[in-house]
Amino acid sequence: MKLLYFAWVREKIGQTEENLPLPEGVSTVGGLVSWLRARSPGHAAAFADPRLIRCAIGQEFVGMDTPLAGAAEVAFFPPVTGG
C-alpha cells in the first residue's frame, strides 16, 4: 500500500510518501489513522486531530469508516483550500 501525504500533513510527517503493508488488525481508514499516530512523533503531530484529516483511496475522497481492503494508493491531507 502506497501512502501519500500533502500540505501540512506532509510537512509534519517529513515525507511525501511511504510504502507499507496493511498493518495487522487495521481494516478502515480511521483505524489506519490511529495506527499511524504511533509510527513517529511527526505522524503523531500530523494525525493529532482526526477531524482535520481527509482521505482519498485511488484518488477518490472517502470517509474514515471506508474499508482499506484492496487499496493501493491512500492519501492523507488537510481539508482542501483551492479556488
Partner: peptide
C-alpha cells in the same frame, strides 16, 4: 463550478505573510 471547486478539488494554499511567516490556509 467555483463553489464546488473550493471544496471538491485537492488543492492547498500556503500563504507567506508580509511579516515573513508562512501559514497553511484553513478551510
Amino acid at each position: 463550478l467555483i463553489d464546488y471547486l473550493k471544496t471538491s478539488a485537492p488543492f492547498w494554499k500556503a500563504e507567506e505573510r508580509e511579516d515573513g511567516t508562512r501559514h497553511w490556509v484553513a478551510a
